[in-house]
Write a protein that binds this DNA or RNA. Structure first.
Lengths: 225, 225
DNA sequence: GTCTGTTTGAAACATACGTTTGAAGCGCAT
DNA sequence: ATGCGCTTCAAACGTATGTTTCAAACAGAC
Protein backbone atom coordinates (compact mmCIF):
# COMPACT_ATOMS: atom_id res chain seq x y z
CA UNK A 1 0.00 0.00 0.00
CA UNK A 2 1.40 3.32 -1.10
CA UNK A 3 1.49 5.11 2.21
CA UNK A 4 -0.51 3.52 4.97
CA UNK A 5 -4.26 3.57 4.60
CA UNK A 6 -4.66 3.62 8.34
CA UNK A 7 -6.14 7.10 8.30
CA UNK A 8 -8.83 6.16 5.79
CA UNK A 9 -9.64 2.91 7.53
CA UNK A 10 -10.15 4.83 10.75
CA UNK A 11 -12.32 7.42 9.02
CA UNK A 12 -14.43 4.74 7.34
CA UNK A 13 -15.00 2.83 10.54
CA UNK A 14 -15.65 5.95 12.59
CA UNK A 15 -18.10 7.32 10.05
CA UNK A 16 -20.16 4.18 10.05
CA UNK A 17 -20.11 3.68 13.80
CA UNK A 18 -20.93 7.31 14.53
CA UNK A 19 -23.84 7.14 12.12
CA UNK A 20 -25.08 3.95 13.74
CA UNK A 21 -24.71 4.82 17.39
CA UNK A 22 -23.89 8.48 17.89
CA UNK A 23 -20.68 10.01 19.12
CA UNK A 24 -20.62 9.45 22.85
CA UNK A 25 -21.85 5.91 22.39
CA UNK A 26 -19.00 5.04 20.05
CA UNK A 27 -15.67 4.36 21.73
CA UNK A 28 -12.26 4.60 20.15
CA UNK A 29 -11.81 0.92 20.86
CA UNK A 30 -14.85 0.06 18.76
CA UNK A 31 -13.51 2.21 15.96
CA UNK A 32 -9.99 0.86 15.99
CA UNK A 33 -11.07 -2.74 16.23
CA UNK A 34 -13.53 -2.33 13.36
CA UNK A 35 -10.83 -0.59 11.37
CA UNK A 36 -8.31 -3.27 12.38
CA UNK A 37 -5.76 -0.72 13.52
CA UNK A 38 -4.06 -0.12 16.83
CA UNK A 39 -5.91 1.88 19.47
CA UNK A 40 -3.18 4.51 19.64
CA UNK A 41 -3.45 5.19 15.91
CA UNK A 42 -6.40 7.51 16.41
CA UNK A 43 -4.57 9.79 18.77
CA UNK A 44 -1.44 9.54 16.67
CA UNK A 45 -3.08 10.55 13.41
CA UNK A 46 -5.86 12.84 14.61
CA UNK A 47 -4.85 13.98 18.07
CA UNK A 48 -8.08 13.31 19.91
CA UNK A 49 -11.50 11.81 19.55
CA UNK A 50 -13.06 15.22 18.93
CA UNK A 51 -10.55 15.93 16.18
CA UNK A 52 -11.49 12.60 14.63
CA UNK A 53 -15.14 13.64 14.66
CA UNK A 54 -14.20 16.87 12.91
CA UNK A 55 -12.18 14.95 10.32
CA UNK A 56 -15.11 12.64 9.61
CA UNK A 57 -17.32 15.65 8.90
CA UNK A 58 -14.69 17.51 6.93
CA UNK A 59 -14.14 14.55 4.64
CA UNK A 60 -17.61 14.77 3.15
CA UNK A 61 -18.63 18.31 4.03
CA UNK A 62 -15.77 20.02 2.21
CA UNK A 63 -16.48 18.49 -1.21
CA UNK A 64 -20.19 18.86 -0.56
CA UNK A 65 -19.99 22.56 0.14
CA UNK A 66 -17.98 23.00 -3.07
CA UNK A 67 -20.64 21.09 -5.02
CA UNK A 68 -23.31 23.18 -3.40
CA UNK A 69 -21.61 26.45 -4.28
CA UNK A 70 -21.46 25.32 -7.90
CA UNK A 71 -25.12 24.39 -7.88
CA UNK A 72 -26.05 27.78 -6.48
CA UNK A 73 -23.84 29.51 -9.03
CA UNK A 74 -25.51 27.68 -11.89
CA UNK A 75 -28.94 28.33 -10.46
CA UNK A 76 -28.41 32.05 -10.09
CA UNK A 77 -26.86 32.23 -13.54
CA UNK A 78 -29.87 30.45 -15.04
CA UNK A 79 -32.20 32.91 -13.34
CA UNK A 80 -30.17 35.90 -14.44
CA UNK A 81 -31.14 38.63 -12.05
CA UNK A 82 -34.43 37.23 -10.84
CA UNK A 83 -34.20 35.36 -7.53
CA UNK A 84 -34.58 31.56 -7.80
CA UNK A 85 -37.86 30.10 -6.61
CA UNK A 86 -38.19 28.19 -3.38
CA UNK A 87 -38.54 24.90 -5.23
CA UNK A 88 -35.46 25.57 -7.29
CA UNK A 89 -33.43 26.43 -4.22
CA UNK A 90 -34.50 23.32 -2.35
CA UNK A 91 -33.87 21.13 -5.35
CA UNK A 92 -30.42 22.58 -5.82
CA UNK A 93 -29.64 21.61 -2.27
CA UNK A 94 -31.03 18.08 -2.41
CA UNK A 95 -29.50 17.35 -5.80
CA UNK A 96 -26.11 18.44 -4.56
CA UNK A 97 -26.46 16.07 -1.65
CA UNK A 98 -27.73 13.19 -3.73
CA UNK A 99 -25.25 13.58 -6.56
CA UNK A 100 -22.18 13.66 -4.36
CA UNK A 101 -19.68 10.96 -5.34
CA UNK A 102 -20.24 8.17 -2.84
CA UNK A 103 -17.65 5.95 -1.30
CA UNK A 104 -20.19 3.13 -1.17
CA UNK A 105 -23.90 2.50 -1.51
CA UNK A 106 -24.51 3.54 2.09
CA UNK A 107 -22.65 6.80 1.58
CA UNK A 108 -25.57 9.13 1.20
CA UNK A 109 -27.57 7.82 4.13
CA UNK A 110 -24.55 7.90 6.41
CA UNK A 111 -23.97 11.44 5.26
CA UNK A 112 -27.52 12.39 6.14
CA UNK A 113 -27.53 10.63 9.43
CA UNK A 114 -24.33 12.35 10.48
CA UNK A 115 -25.75 15.72 9.56
CA UNK A 116 -28.81 14.96 11.63
CA UNK A 117 -26.67 13.92 14.57
CA UNK A 118 -24.60 17.07 14.25
CA UNK A 119 -27.69 19.14 14.80
CA UNK A 120 -29.34 16.92 17.30
CA UNK A 121 -26.58 15.57 19.47
CA UNK A 122 -25.44 19.06 20.29
CA UNK A 123 -21.77 18.56 20.96
CA UNK A 124 -20.50 22.05 21.55
CA UNK A 125 -17.21 21.52 19.79
CA UNK A 126 -18.90 20.16 16.68
CA UNK A 127 -21.31 23.07 16.39
CA UNK A 128 -18.44 25.49 16.65
CA UNK A 129 -16.35 23.60 14.13
CA UNK A 130 -19.15 23.45 11.57
CA UNK A 131 -20.09 27.07 11.99
CA UNK A 132 -16.50 28.17 11.51
CA UNK A 133 -15.77 25.97 8.52
CA UNK A 134 -19.00 26.01 6.57
CA UNK A 135 -20.78 29.22 7.41
CA UNK A 136 -20.52 30.57 3.88
CA UNK A 137 -22.66 28.08 1.91
CA UNK A 138 -25.06 28.03 4.82
CA UNK A 139 -25.69 31.75 4.85
CA UNK A 140 -25.90 31.77 1.08
CA UNK A 141 -28.68 29.19 1.33
CA UNK A 142 -30.39 31.37 3.88
CA UNK A 143 -30.19 34.38 1.60
CA UNK A 144 -31.73 32.41 -1.27
CA UNK A 145 -34.53 31.27 1.02
CA UNK A 146 -35.20 34.83 2.01
CA UNK A 147 -35.41 36.04 -1.58
CA UNK A 148 -37.65 33.12 -2.50
CA UNK A 149 -40.18 33.90 0.23
CA UNK A 150 -40.55 37.68 0.28
CA UNK A 151 -44.15 37.37 1.41
CA UNK A 152 -43.10 35.98 4.80
CA UNK A 153 -42.31 38.13 7.80
CA UNK A 154 -38.83 37.67 9.21
CA UNK A 155 -40.23 35.91 12.23
CA UNK A 156 -42.40 33.57 10.22
CA UNK A 157 -39.54 32.76 7.88
CA UNK A 158 -37.23 32.14 10.79
CA UNK A 159 -39.49 29.61 12.38
CA UNK A 160 -40.41 27.89 9.15
CA UNK A 161 -36.75 27.47 8.31
CA UNK A 162 -36.34 25.77 11.66
CA UNK A 163 -39.26 23.51 10.83
CA UNK A 164 -37.65 22.60 7.51
CA UNK A 165 -34.32 21.90 9.13
CA UNK A 166 -36.05 19.78 11.72
CA UNK A 167 -38.02 17.70 9.28
CA UNK A 168 -34.91 17.15 7.21
CA UNK A 169 -32.38 16.49 9.92
CA UNK A 170 -34.69 14.28 11.88
CA UNK A 171 -35.88 12.22 8.96
CA UNK A 172 -32.43 11.78 7.55
CA UNK A 173 -30.92 11.02 10.89
CA UNK A 174 -33.18 8.03 11.30
CA UNK A 175 -33.70 7.23 7.65
CA UNK A 176 -32.30 3.74 7.95
CA UNK A 177 -34.66 2.79 10.74
CA UNK A 178 -37.59 4.43 8.98
CA UNK A 179 -36.80 2.62 5.75
CA UNK A 180 -36.70 -0.68 7.58
CA UNK A 181 -40.04 -0.05 9.23
CA UNK A 182 -41.61 0.81 5.90
CA UNK A 183 -40.08 -2.28 4.35
CA UNK A 184 -41.56 -4.50 7.05
CA UNK A 185 -44.96 -2.84 7.23
CA UNK A 186 -45.77 -2.20 3.61
CA UNK A 187 -43.08 -4.19 1.84
CA UNK A 188 -41.81 -1.10 0.05
CA UNK A 189 -38.18 -0.43 -0.76
CA UNK A 190 -37.05 3.16 -0.52
CA UNK A 191 -33.92 4.98 -1.57
CA UNK A 192 -32.60 8.11 0.00
CA UNK A 193 -33.23 9.86 -3.30
CA UNK A 194 -36.90 9.02 -3.05
CA UNK A 195 -37.09 10.26 0.51
CA UNK A 196 -35.55 13.53 -0.61
CA UNK A 197 -37.97 13.72 -3.50
CA UNK A 198 -40.87 13.36 -1.08
CA UNK A 199 -39.39 15.77 1.39
CA UNK A 200 -38.97 18.72 -0.95
CA UNK A 201 -42.65 19.22 -1.83
CA UNK A 202 -43.55 18.83 1.81
CA UNK A 203 -41.10 21.52 2.82
CA UNK A 204 -42.07 23.85 0.00
CA UNK A 205 -45.74 23.57 0.84
CA UNK A 206 -45.14 24.15 4.52
CA UNK A 207 -42.89 27.08 3.82
CA UNK A 208 -45.55 28.74 1.71
CA UNK A 209 -48.52 27.90 3.92
CA UNK A 210 -51.18 30.50 4.46
CA UNK A 211 -50.75 31.67 7.99
CA UNK A 212 -53.75 30.31 9.85
CA UNK A 213 -52.09 30.99 13.16
CA UNK A 214 -54.86 32.96 14.75
CA UNK A 215 -57.69 30.89 13.33
CA UNK A 216 -57.77 27.60 15.18
CA UNK A 217 -60.65 25.33 14.16
CA UNK A 218 -64.05 25.96 15.66
CA UNK A 219 -64.65 24.36 19.01
CA UNK A 220 -61.13 24.57 20.34
CA UNK A 221 -60.09 27.37 22.59
CA UNK A 222 -56.68 28.93 22.15
CA UNK A 223 -54.74 28.77 25.36
CA UNK A 224 -53.06 32.05 26.17
CA UNK A 225 -52.17 31.00 29.73
CA UNK B 1 -41.65 16.16 54.53
CA UNK B 2 -44.37 13.59 54.48
CA UNK B 3 -42.50 10.66 53.01
CA UNK B 4 -39.15 11.45 51.55
CA UNK B 5 -39.15 13.51 48.41
CA UNK B 6 -35.92 11.89 47.30
CA UNK B 7 -37.61 10.18 44.39
CA UNK B 8 -39.09 13.43 43.08
CA UNK B 9 -35.90 15.36 43.59
CA UNK B 10 -34.05 12.75 41.53
CA UNK B 11 -36.69 12.85 38.82
CA UNK B 12 -36.62 16.65 38.69
CA UNK B 13 -32.86 16.80 38.42
CA UNK B 14 -32.65 13.95 35.93
CA UNK B 15 -35.35 15.43 33.74
CA UNK B 16 -33.60 18.76 33.48
CA UNK B 17 -30.13 17.32 32.96
CA UNK B 18 -31.29 14.80 30.38
CA UNK B 19 -33.05 17.56 28.49
CA UNK B 20 -29.94 19.72 28.60
CA UNK B 21 -27.29 17.19 27.74
CA UNK B 22 -28.78 13.92 26.59
CA UNK B 23 -28.77 10.58 28.34
CA UNK B 24 -25.28 9.19 27.87
CA UNK B 25 -23.78 12.58 28.60
CA UNK B 26 -25.54 12.83 31.95
CA UNK B 27 -24.00 10.81 34.77
CA UNK B 28 -25.72 9.60 37.88
CA UNK B 29 -23.31 11.70 39.88
CA UNK B 30 -24.44 14.86 38.14
CA UNK B 31 -28.02 13.93 38.84
CA UNK B 32 -27.56 13.05 42.48
CA UNK B 33 -25.46 16.09 43.23
CA UNK B 34 -27.95 18.41 41.54
CA UNK B 35 -30.75 16.69 43.43
CA UNK B 36 -28.72 16.82 46.65
CA UNK B 37 -29.22 13.14 47.36
CA UNK B 38 -26.83 10.27 47.81
CA UNK B 39 -25.44 8.57 44.75
CA UNK B 40 -26.80 5.19 45.77
CA UNK B 41 -30.33 6.59 45.98
CA UNK B 42 -30.85 6.22 42.26
CA UNK B 43 -30.11 2.54 42.23
CA UNK B 44 -32.02 2.06 45.45
CA UNK B 45 -35.21 3.74 44.25
CA UNK B 46 -35.12 2.97 40.55
CA UNK B 47 -32.80 0.01 40.16
CA UNK B 48 -30.68 1.30 37.32
CA UNK B 49 -29.97 4.32 35.19
CA UNK B 50 -32.10 2.99 32.36
CA UNK B 51 -35.01 2.48 34.73
CA UNK B 52 -34.58 6.07 35.86
CA UNK B 53 -34.83 7.22 32.26
CA UNK B 54 -38.05 5.25 31.90
CA UNK B 55 -39.41 6.79 35.08
CA UNK B 56 -38.65 10.30 33.85
CA UNK B 57 -40.64 9.63 30.70
CA UNK B 58 -43.44 7.89 32.48
CA UNK B 59 -43.95 10.79 34.87
CA UNK B 60 -45.08 13.14 32.15
CA UNK B 61 -46.09 10.75 29.41
CA UNK B 62 -48.71 8.93 31.43
CA UNK B 63 -50.79 12.01 32.32
CA UNK B 64 -50.21 13.37 28.85
CA UNK B 65 -51.52 10.30 27.13
CA UNK B 66 -54.61 10.46 29.33
CA UNK B 67 -55.16 14.11 28.42
CA UNK B 68 -54.67 13.24 24.80
CA UNK B 69 -57.20 10.44 24.89
CA UNK B 70 -59.74 12.85 26.33
CA UNK B 71 -59.02 15.41 23.65
CA UNK B 72 -59.47 12.80 20.95
CA UNK B 73 -62.69 11.59 22.58
CA UNK B 74 -64.12 15.09 22.63
CA UNK B 75 -63.00 15.73 19.09
CA UNK B 76 -64.59 12.59 17.71
CA UNK B 77 -67.76 13.25 19.67
CA UNK B 78 -67.96 16.77 18.25
CA UNK B 79 -67.58 15.40 14.74
CA UNK B 80 -70.17 12.69 15.32
CA UNK B 81 -69.40 10.11 12.68
CA UNK B 82 -67.44 12.25 10.26
CA UNK B 83 -63.67 11.96 10.63
CA UNK B 84 -62.00 15.05 12.15
CA UNK B 85 -60.00 17.22 9.79
CA UNK B 86 -56.24 17.30 9.75
CA UNK B 87 -56.20 20.73 11.35
CA UNK B 88 -58.52 19.61 14.12
CA UNK B 89 -56.40 16.55 14.82
CA UNK B 90 -53.17 18.50 14.96
CA UNK B 91 -54.73 21.14 17.17
CA UNK B 92 -56.04 18.52 19.54
CA UNK B 93 -52.53 17.19 19.92
CA UNK B 94 -50.81 20.53 20.40
CA UNK B 95 -53.42 21.81 22.78
CA UNK B 96 -53.10 18.69 24.89
CA UNK B 97 -49.38 19.24 25.07
CA UNK B 98 -49.61 22.93 25.81
CA UNK B 99 -52.38 22.61 28.36
CA UNK B 100 -50.68 19.94 30.42
CA UNK B 101 -50.28 21.02 34.04
CA UNK B 102 -46.65 22.11 34.30
CA UNK B 103 -44.34 21.61 37.22
CA UNK B 104 -42.64 24.87 36.29
CA UNK B 105 -42.36 27.37 33.47
CA UNK B 106 -39.77 25.26 31.70
CA UNK B 107 -42.02 22.22 31.84
CA UNK B 108 -43.34 22.24 28.33
CA UNK B 109 -40.01 22.79 26.62
CA UNK B 110 -38.30 20.12 28.69
CA UNK B 111 -41.15 17.82 27.80
CA UNK B 112 -40.62 18.54 24.12
CA UNK B 113 -36.89 18.26 24.24
CA UNK B 114 -37.09 14.89 25.95
CA UNK B 115 -39.49 13.63 23.33
CA UNK B 116 -37.09 14.78 20.66
CA UNK B 117 -34.22 13.02 22.37
CA UNK B 118 -36.23 9.85 22.73
CA UNK B 119 -36.63 9.67 18.99
CA UNK B 120 -33.21 10.93 18.08
CA UNK B 121 -30.86 9.42 20.61
CA UNK B 122 -31.96 5.96 19.68
CA UNK B 123 -31.44 4.12 22.91
CA UNK B 124 -32.86 0.71 22.19
CA UNK B 125 -34.34 0.25 25.64
CA UNK B 126 -36.18 3.57 25.52
CA UNK B 127 -37.76 2.89 22.15
CA UNK B 128 -38.97 -0.44 23.38
CA UNK B 129 -40.31 1.03 26.60
CA UNK B 130 -42.22 3.80 24.88
CA UNK B 131 -43.67 1.50 22.27
CA UNK B 132 -44.89 -0.92 24.90
CA UNK B 133 -46.36 1.66 27.25
CA UNK B 134 -47.83 4.26 24.93
CA UNK B 135 -48.66 2.49 21.72
CA UNK B 136 -52.38 3.08 22.13
CA UNK B 137 -52.65 6.89 21.94
CA UNK B 138 -49.95 6.84 19.29
CA UNK B 139 -51.78 4.49 16.98
CA UNK B 140 -55.02 6.35 17.61
CA UNK B 141 -53.33 9.54 16.44
CA UNK B 142 -52.08 7.66 13.40
CA UNK B 143 -55.58 6.44 12.62
CA UNK B 144 -56.95 9.98 12.84
CA UNK B 145 -54.23 11.20 10.53
CA UNK B 146 -55.06 8.47 8.07
CA UNK B 147 -58.75 9.35 8.05
CA UNK B 148 -57.94 13.03 7.68
CA UNK B 149 -55.77 12.47 4.62
CA UNK B 150 -57.55 9.83 2.53
CA UNK B 151 -56.08 11.31 -0.64
CA UNK B 152 -52.55 10.23 0.32
CA UNK B 153 -51.06 6.87 -0.49
CA UNK B 154 -49.88 4.85 2.50
CA UNK B 155 -46.28 5.45 1.60
CA UNK B 156 -46.70 9.17 1.12
CA UNK B 157 -48.57 9.45 4.37
CA UNK B 158 -45.94 7.46 6.20
CA UNK B 159 -43.14 9.72 5.11
CA UNK B 160 -45.03 12.92 5.66
CA UNK B 161 -45.84 11.83 9.19
CA UNK B 162 -42.13 11.35 9.74
CA UNK B 163 -41.52 14.85 8.38
CA UNK B 164 -44.08 16.26 10.79
CA UNK B 165 -42.59 14.41 13.72
CA UNK B 166 -39.17 15.66 12.73
CA UNK B 167 -40.13 19.28 12.41
CA UNK B 168 -41.93 19.11 15.73
CA UNK B 169 -39.43 17.14 17.76
CA UNK B 170 -36.47 19.04 16.42
CA UNK B 171 -37.95 22.49 16.87
CA UNK B 172 -39.29 21.78 20.29
CA UNK B 173 -36.14 20.06 21.40
CA UNK B 174 -34.12 23.17 20.73
CA UNK B 175 -36.87 25.69 21.31
CA UNK B 176 -34.99 27.42 24.10
CA UNK B 177 -31.94 28.06 21.96
CA UNK B 178 -34.06 29.07 18.99
CA UNK B 179 -36.07 31.49 21.10
CA UNK B 180 -32.88 33.08 22.38
CA UNK B 181 -31.48 33.52 18.87
CA UNK B 182 -34.69 35.14 17.73
CA UNK B 183 -34.68 37.39 20.77
CA UNK B 184 -31.15 38.57 20.01
CA UNK B 185 -31.52 38.90 16.25
CA UNK B 186 -34.95 40.43 15.88
CA UNK B 187 -35.75 41.40 19.44
CA UNK B 188 -38.88 39.27 19.46
CA UNK B 189 -40.20 37.35 22.45
CA UNK B 190 -41.79 33.99 21.77
CA UNK B 191 -43.74 31.51 23.85
CA UNK B 192 -43.94 27.82 23.26
CA UNK B 193 -47.62 28.29 22.52
CA UNK B 194 -46.78 30.67 19.71
CA UNK B 195 -44.26 28.27 18.27
CA UNK B 196 -46.91 25.59 18.27
CA UNK B 197 -49.34 27.98 16.63
CA UNK B 198 -46.84 28.59 13.83
CA UNK B 199 -45.98 24.94 13.53
CA UNK B 200 -49.47 23.59 12.98
CA UNK B 201 -50.21 25.44 9.72
CA UNK B 202 -46.76 24.53 8.44
CA UNK B 203 -47.38 20.86 9.14
CA UNK B 204 -50.90 20.90 7.76
CA UNK B 205 -49.76 22.53 4.53
CA UNK B 206 -46.87 20.12 4.12
CA UNK B 207 -49.10 17.16 4.86
CA UNK B 208 -51.55 18.21 2.18
CA UNK B 209 -49.00 19.28 -0.42
CA UNK B 210 -49.62 18.38 -4.03
CA UNK B 211 -47.17 15.66 -4.83
CA UNK B 212 -44.68 17.30 -7.14
CA UNK B 213 -42.26 14.45 -6.62
CA UNK B 214 -41.73 13.61 -10.25
CA UNK B 215 -41.87 17.17 -11.49
CA UNK B 216 -38.65 18.87 -10.43
CA UNK B 217 -38.28 22.42 -11.72
CA UNK B 218 -37.11 22.95 -15.27
CA UNK B 219 -33.38 22.84 -15.72
CA UNK B 220 -32.58 20.28 -13.09
CA UNK B 221 -32.19 16.62 -13.96
CA UNK B 222 -33.63 14.02 -11.64
CA UNK B 223 -30.99 11.61 -10.50
CA UNK B 224 -32.15 8.01 -10.68
CA UNK B 225 -28.66 6.56 -10.20
C1' DG C 1 -37.65 2.12 75.10
C1' DT C 2 -37.19 -1.44 71.83
C1' DC C 3 -37.74 -3.67 67.81
C1' DT C 4 -38.53 -3.70 62.56
C1' DG C 5 -38.56 -2.34 58.01
C1' DT C 6 -37.22 1.41 55.16
C1' DT C 7 -34.15 4.91 53.68
C1' DT C 8 -29.70 7.32 53.63
C1' DG C 9 -24.61 7.58 53.83
C1' DA C 10 -19.61 6.98 52.70
C1' DA C 11 -16.83 4.01 50.59
C1' DA C 12 -15.46 0.68 47.55
C1' DC C 13 -15.98 -2.23 43.32
C1' DA C 14 -15.35 -3.55 38.60
C1' DT C 15 -15.28 -1.84 34.25
C1' DA C 16 -14.77 1.27 30.42
C1' DC C 17 -13.10 5.26 28.63
C1' DG C 18 -9.58 8.70 26.20
C1' DT C 19 -4.94 9.39 26.28
C1' DT C 20 0.16 8.67 26.86
C1' DT C 21 4.32 6.10 26.81
C1' DG C 22 8.35 3.92 25.04
C1' DA C 23 9.98 0.26 22.52
C1' DA C 24 9.78 -2.17 18.11
C1' DG C 25 9.12 -2.18 13.08
C1' DC C 26 9.36 -0.22 8.72
C1' DG C 27 10.92 2.18 4.22
C1' DC C 28 14.49 4.68 2.32
C1' DA C 29 18.36 7.80 1.45
C1' DT C 30 23.09 7.76 2.36
C1' DA D 1 25.00 -1.73 6.58
C1' DT D 2 23.78 2.32 8.97
C1' DG D 3 21.02 5.93 10.52
C1' DC D 4 16.73 8.56 10.40
C1' DG D 5 11.69 9.71 10.12
C1' DC D 6 7.51 7.95 10.36
C1' DT D 7 4.32 4.54 11.85
C1' DT D 8 2.68 0.64 14.61
C1' DC D 9 2.24 -1.90 18.77
C1' DA D 10 1.31 -3.62 23.57
C1' DA D 11 0.89 -1.87 27.78
C1' DA D 12 -0.08 1.23 31.09
C1' DC D 13 -2.06 5.64 33.08
C1' DG D 14 -5.50 8.44 35.21
C1' DT D 15 -10.14 9.31 35.38
C1' DA D 16 -15.08 8.59 35.20
C1' DT D 17 -18.75 5.66 34.97
C1' DG D 18 -22.79 2.46 36.84
C1' DT D 19 -23.39 -0.49 40.50
C1' DT D 20 -22.85 -2.79 45.09
C1' DT D 21 -21.97 -3.06 49.92
C1' DC D 22 -22.89 -2.56 54.61
C1' DA D 23 -23.22 0.23 58.51
C1' DA D 24 -25.71 4.22 60.35
C1' DA D 25 -29.94 6.92 60.73
C1' DC D 26 -34.63 7.09 60.79
C1' DA D 27 -39.78 6.37 61.38
C1' DG D 28 -43.62 4.08 63.28
C1' DA D 29 -45.76 0.12 65.99
C1' DC D 30 -45.89 -2.23 70.03
Amino acid sequence: MAQSDTVDRILDAAEELFADRGFSETSLRMITSKAKVNLAAVNYHFGSKNALIHAVFARFLTPFSATLENAFDQLEERCDGKPPTLNQTLWALTESAVRMPQRNEKGISIFMRLLGLAYTQSQGHLRKFLEQEYSEPFSRFMRLLKEATPQLSSVDRYWRIQFMLGATAFTMSSSDALRDILQNKLGVETTVQEIAARLVPFLAAGMQAEDAMLIPPAGSKVSVA
